[in-house]
Amino acid sequence: MVMVSEKPILPPHVKIVEMGPRDGLQNEKQPVSTEVKLELIQRLINAGEKNIEATAFVSPKWVPQMADHHEIMLGLKKLNSDDVMFPVLTPNLKGFEGALAGDAKEVAVFAAASESFSQKNINCSIAESIESFKPVMEAAKENSVLVRGYVSCVLGCPFEGDIAAEKVAEVAKALYDLGCYEISLGDTIGTGTPSKAQAMIKEVAKYVPINHLACHFHDTYGQALANLYACLELGVSTIDSSVAGIGGCPYAPGATGNVATEDVVYMLNGLGIETGIDLDKLVDAGVFISDVLGRKPVSNAANALLSKRAVK
């Protein structure tokens, strides 16, 4: 008689942090209007999304797509979004001050687990980047603004290859100790596999409580869903994803976009895990922005559901 092991205890609810309007669109070469971005955000809200990264307060010289951050903040106030959080990226104090002027309630800072990537991405060492966040953290605390921390290249770097889990844990701990309420661990180039993802999470969880960790996985090698499931098994209950799979990383050659929100929600629905998101309305939001960009959604679930609709 073959014994079947009990299935792992998975979280009953998963918080989705939607990356589409910021991380998704920032790498698109064609300009996307403020009106379209706000329409996308409203459609995501209509689908039930409660955490939507809206924009980035970065230099338009480096990220032209985010040049309308002030207009986006003004537009958010007009949306039907009383219970929705809109984190915005603020790499420095100047960015934070701009976000604060727009009444931001949550901001995000980003570091890397790779020295080479840190230099290529933000032109400083990891230690220097952590030091530069201190004024942001102090200002955020004074103004009761939440701060989320990102760590890039947690499962591999385009310049250094494999990254030690201990290094990821060191950077995550530094951000958590600074006051970041949540640490998002990014597989920026999508090279991770389930066993590596679990090993990394286990190491980071020695220093940052598991309920303060999020997974931000790209799907370059088609491993994102498998990696996410492996992390759910360990108790991670926050996932970053991008509607229609849009996006990428301008400083990570060859990296495709974040895992598609539609694919994540479809998987979670199948596992009986609550997200509060209406998959059909989410697919519609993905179709909307994909049409603007002139391509099909980069989501297997979305395209399968769209095919089913077409034959009805």
Rank of each mutant, 00 (worst) to 15 (best):
G20P: 01
G20K: 02
G20F: 13
P21A: 04
R22C: 01
D23N: 10
D23C: 03
D23P: 01
G24T: 11
G24P: 00
G24Y: 09
Q26G: 05
Q26V: 12
Q26N: 05
N27E: 03
N27D: 02
K29V: 13
K29D: 12
P31A: 11
P31K: 04
S33I: 02
T34A: 09
E35K: 10
E35H: 06
E35R: 06
V36T: 15
K37Y: 08
K37E: 09
K37R: 14
L38K: 09
L38G: 03
L38E: 11
E39G: 00
E39Y: 00
E39M: 04
L40K: 01
L40A: 10
L40H: 02
I41E: 08
I41V: 15
Q42A: 11
Q42W: 04
Q42S: 12
Q42V: 05
R43P: 00
R43A: 02
L44D: 06
I45P: 04
I45W: 08
I45L: 09
I45K: 06
N46V: 12
N46R: 02
G48F: 04
G48V: 06
K50F: 01
K50I: 07
K50T: 14
N51I: 03
N51P: 00
N51V: 12
I52E: 00
I52Y: 04
E53I: 11
E53L: 02
E53Q: 14
T55V: 11
A56H: 07
A56D: 08
A56S: 15
F57V: 13
F57L: 08
F57S: 07
V58A: 09
S59D: 07
S59V: 08
S59C: 05
S59M: 05
P60F: 10
K61Y: 02
K61I: 07
K61V: 08
V63S: 03
V63H: 00
P64M: 11
Q65N: 11
M66Q: 05
M66C: 10
M66P: 00
M66D: 07
A67F: 00
D68P: 07
D68I: 06
H69Y: 08
H70T: 10
E71N: 03
I72F: 02
M73K: 10
M73F: 01
M73W: 04
G75N: 09
G75Q: 13
G75R: 13
G75V: 08
L76P: 03
K77E: 13
K78F: 00
K78A: 15
K78Y: 00
L79P: 12
L79A: 15
L79D: 15
L79M: 12
L79F: 09
L79E: 14
N80T: 10
N80S: 14
N80H: 14
N80C: 06
S81K: 05
D82E: 15
D83P: 02
V84D: 06
M85K: 13
M85I: 15
F86V: 05
P87R: 12
V88R: 09
V88T: 15
V88W: 04
V88N: 05
L89D: 12
L89T: 11
L89K: 12
T90L: 01
P91N: 11
P91W: 13
N92R: 14
N92K: 13
N92Q: 13
L93K: 15
L93A: 14
K94R: 15
K94T: 12
K94V: 08
G95F: 12
F96L: 07
G98M: 11
G98P: 09
A99I: 09
A99S: 10
A99W: 07
A101Y: 01
G102V: 08
G102C: 07
D103Q: 15
A104T: 10
K105H: 07
